[in-house]
Design a protein around this nucleic acid. Sequence first.
DNA 1: TTTCTGACAACAA
DNA 2: ATTGTTGCCAGAA
Length: 112
Amino acid sequence: MSSSQHFFKKVYALVCQIPEGRVCTYGLIAKGIGSEGAARMVGWALNAAHLEADIPAHRVVNRGGLLSGKHHFPGENLMQQLLENEGVEIRENKIVHLEKHLWIPPVFIEPK
DNA sequence: TTTCTGACAACAA
DNA sequence: ATTGTTGCCAGAA
């Protein structure tokens, strides 16, 4: 396992920690793994992972609570259904009361 | 090594 | 307020 994939691994680990019924944003995740500003990379990581692991990628949305990744799920509104099934209200592909469901990840402390 | 790209975020018109 | 453009990071070609 090269160190390059470490980034992805951290993303997966953090996303898997998102509690059921809660959501998180790309930016917060990037920050949580010690790479603030790499929000786009988080999406890339999920894109590569959503097909293989049990990663709750549907709980990751953009800063505005918009289900920006729903288009990558099978079906037209699977992502929305998964979230609603967990008690997250969604309106027009956006999470209602984002703050209410937002889960802030613990800050990742890298061993040095 | 250089260049392109991406499920974002912030800023400018 | 809405739309468009730029900056960001790290991985893949």
